[in-house]
Lab assay of single mutants.
Amino acid sequence: MEVRTIKVFTTVDNINLHTQVVDMSMTYGQQFGPTYLDGADVTKIKPHNSHEGKTFYVLPNDDTLRVEAFEYYHTTDPSFLGRYMSALNHTKKWKYPQVNGLTSIKWADNNCYLATALLTLQQIELKFNPPALQDAYYRARAGEAANFCALILAYCNKTVGELGDVRETMSYLFQHANLDSCKRVLNVVCKTCGQQQTTLKGVEAVMYMGTLSYEQFKKGVQIPCTCGKQATKYLVQQESPFVMMSAPPAQYELKHGTFTCASEYTGNYQCGHYKHITSKETLYCIDGALLTKSSEYKGPITDVFYKENSYTTTIK
Rank of each mutant, 00 (worst) to 15 (best):
K92L: 10
K54P: 04
K7I: 15
L17S: 09
K316S: 11
M24D: 07
N157Y: 10
I223L: 09
K44Y: 15
F217P: 01
E52R: 12
A140G: 04
Q216G: 10
D13K: 04
T169C: 11
F128C: 02
I315V: 07
T64S: 14
K275C: 08
A231Y: 00
T266D: 12
K127W: 07
V8M: 13
D41V: 14
P130E: 05
V203Y: 15
A87E: 07
T312H: 09
E253H: 10
P300I: 15
K93A: 09
K191S: 14
G39F: 12
N187W: 08
Y252I: 13
F242S: 01
E162W: 02
P34G: 10
P47N: 05
T211S: 13
T226K: 13
L163D: 01
D41F: 07
G194L: 02
T120V: 09
M26A: 15
E52L: 13
W107M: 02
L81G: 07
F32A: 08
K298M: 11
G220Y: 02
G272A: 01
A146M: 07
A108T: 07
K127F: 08
N16H: 14
T278A: 14
F242Q: 01
C156D: 01
E215H: 07
V58I: 10
L17W: 06
N129C: 09
A142I: 12
G257E: 07
L81Y: 09
N89Q: 06
I301K: 00
L151H: 03
M209P: 03
H90I: 12
F128P: 03
V189F: 11
K92M: 14
D63R: 09
N14E: 15
S263H: 12
M244Y: 01
S294P: 12
E204R: 11
T232M: 13
K229V: 10
S279C: 06
K307F: 08
D62N: 12
G33K: 05
D77R: 05
L186H: 09
L163E: 07
V21R: 14
F259I: 01
K219H: 10
F70P: 06
V304W: 00
V58L: 11
A132K: 06
N89Y: 10
K316R: 13
Y297V: 05
E168G: 06
P47C: 08
D63Y: 09
T27C: 10
P60V: 06
S79E: 15
L200G: 02
A117T: 08
C156H: 04
H74V: 04
G228P: 01
G53R: 13
P34H: 12
D23R: 14
E264H: 04
T91V: 12
N16M: 12
E253Q: 10
P241T: 11
L200T: 11
K93V: 09
D180L: 07
W94H: 03
K201M: 14
Y57T: 10
A146N: 03
P60A: 11
K280N: 15
Y234R: 12
V67T: 13
C285H: 06
Q197V: 14
M244S: 01
Y113D: 02
Y138G: 14
G202H: 05
K218N: 02
Y155P: 01
I277S: 00
H90M: 13
Y265A: 00
E52C: 12
T169F: 03
Y73T: 03
K255G: 05
C227Q: 01
Q134T: 12
E144Q: 11
K233V: 14
T116K: 02
T211E: 11
S240I: 00
Q195F: 15
A247Y: 03
Q175C: 07
N129A: 09
E239N: 14
T232S: 08
K93F: 11
E68K: 10
Q237K: 14
N100L: 07
R167G: 04
L254S: 00
N16W: 07
T192Y: 10
K316F: 08
Y57S: 09
M26D: 15
V8I: 13
Q230S: 12
K218S: 05
Y73P: 05
Y274W: 00
L118M: 14
R141Y: 07
E308K: 06
Y274V: 00
N14C: 14
C112Q: 05
V12W: 07
L119R: 02
T19C: 11
C225A: 01
F148Q: 02
P248H: 07
A132T: 04
L290V: 15
E253N: 12
Y234P: 00
A154V: 06
K95D: 09
H18F: 08
M170P: 03
T43F: 11
P130T: 12
Y137H: 09
Q30L: 14
C225H: 10
F242C: 00
A145S: 05
E162K: 04
K275H: 00
V67R: 14
M245Q: 00
A231V: 04
K44M: 15
L81F: 12
C190T: 02
D165I: 03
M26F: 14
K280I: 08
L163F: 10
P224M: 15
H176E: 06
Q30P: 08
Y252L: 07
A289L: 06
S310N: 07
R141D: 05
Q197G: 07
T10M: 06
G220C: 03
L114C: 03
A146F: 06
K183R: 11
P131C: 02
P60C: 08
K106H: 15
I15R: 12
C193K: 04
Q270Y: 12
G272I: 00
Y297R: 00
G257Y: 00
L173F: 01
F242T: 01
F70R: 15
D63I: 07
T211G: 10
Y252C: 10
L118D: 05
G202N: 06
G29A: 07
G101D: 08
Y234I: 12
G143Y: 02
Q195E: 14
E264F: 01
N111Y: 02
T292N: 06
T198I: 14
L88R: 05
S263Y: 00
I301W: 00
V185G: 02
K201Y: 10
V243K: 00
P224T: 13
M24Q: 11
I277W: 09
K93M: 07
S104G: 07
R4D: 08
I45T: 13
N16I: 10
Y208P: 00
I315K: 12
D77P: 02
K219D: 08
